[in-house]
Simulated assay, not measured.
Amino acid sequence: MQETQIDIPPPPSPPPADLIARLRLRGLLAGEGAEALAGGRSNRVWRLSGGLVLKLYDPSAATPIFANDAGREAAALIALAGIGLAPELVAAEPAGQAPWVLYRHLPGERWVEGAGAVGRLLGGLHRQPPPDLPAGPDGSAALAGQGREILALCPDDAGLAALEPKGEVAPAGRRVLIHGDPVPANIVVGPKGAALIDWQCPALGDPAADLAIFLSPAMQLIYRGAPLDPAEEQAFLAAYPDGRVIARLRALLPWFHWRMAAYCQLQAGRGQTPYAEGLALEVSALQRSLKK
Rank of each mutant, 00 (worst) to 15 (best):
A158C: 09
L56D: 04
L54G: 03
A135W: 00
L102A: 04
N68F: 03
L19N: 07
L89W: 08
P182F: 02
L211N: 07
L37C: 06
I197M: 03
L163H: 06
T273R: 15
P207L: 06
S140L: 13
N43Q: 05
G173C: 11
P241Y: 09
I78Q: 14
D229V: 05
G123E: 09
G136L: 06
L85M: 09
N43S: 08
Q2G: 13
Y103Q: 08
P107K: 09
T63M: 02
S60C: 02
P274F: 11
A261V: 08
E113R: 10
D181G: 01
Y223H: 15
K166W: 00
G173N: 11
K292L: 12
K192H: 15
A162P: 05
Q97L: 14
W258K: 06
A36W: 09
V283D: 06
P217D: 03
P137W: 10
G96R: 03
W111T: 04
D181I: 09
G84D: 06
S140M: 12
A261S: 08
S42L: 00
L253D: 03
A61M: 07
L228T: 06
I246C: 13
A262H: 00
D69N: 11
P12I: 13
P274R: 12
P137A: 11
P274V: 06
H126D: 10
C154I: 04
A285P: 01
A81L: 00
K292R: 13
G50H: 10
C201H: 05
L252H: 01
D132M: 11
I213E: 06
S13E: 15
L25P: 00
P14I: 11
A280F: 04
I83W: 01
R175Q: 13
L160A: 00
Y263I: 02
A212R: 04
V118A: 01
P11G: 13
V176E: 10
P12H: 10
Q265A: 15
A95G: 09
V189H: 07
Q146H: 12
G123L: 08
V169D: 12
R288W: 11
A238G: 02
Y263P: 03
I222L: 15
Q287C: 04
D7V: 13
A38E: 13
L56R: 08
V45I: 14
P87R: 02
L215D: 04
F66R: 06
L286V: 05
L279A: 02
L290H: 03
A62E: 09
A91C: 05
Q146I: 15
P207V: 13
E32P: 08
Q234R: 15
G180C: 01
A76T: 11
A79V: 03
F256D: 05
M260H: 14
Q2S: 15
D242M: 01
A208Q: 10
K166G: 15
L279G: 00
I197S: 03
A251W: 08
N68E: 11
L25C: 12
R250P: 07
D181V: 02
C264S: 07
A115M: 01
F66W: 00
A247I: 00
P9L: 10
V283K: 04
L29T: 12
L102I: 10
A74E: 10
P182L: 07
